[in-house]
Amino acid sequence: MSRINDVGGMAGFPPIVEEPDEPRFHADWEAHVFALNGALIKRGVYDLDEFRDAQERLPVAEYLGSSYYERWFAAITTLLAEKGIATPAELEP
């Protein structure tokens, strides 16, 4: 069965919107999520394929309801819990 990320050819999404002069990140936390992921992969906590997989198996509603970097952060926390780095409770403030 294909996963929700496999959207090629799917109908029903809203129109394509271009953002003029789009910044690299829309908020500081996005830059931090980006850097955090790179640091954890470099350290061998997980690899790039595991990171993609963790996004692709997010619950459908969460995948579709999340922004790009929200998905990244959800994948990071999923993997940190699964790898035994921290419990889900410890990962929440």
């Binding site: 500081d28 936390w29 999520v33 955090l36 640091a39 929200e70 990071i76 990962l91 403030p93």
Partner: peptide, 18 residues
């Protein structure tokens, strides 16, 4: 989410992963 990201970063720093 900003607070959650900061929290995870601090946790990883404390555990020597960052």
């Amino acid at each position: 989410i900003s607070a959650r990201v900061r929290h995870v970063e601090a946790l990883l720093e404390a555990r020597g992963l960052l």
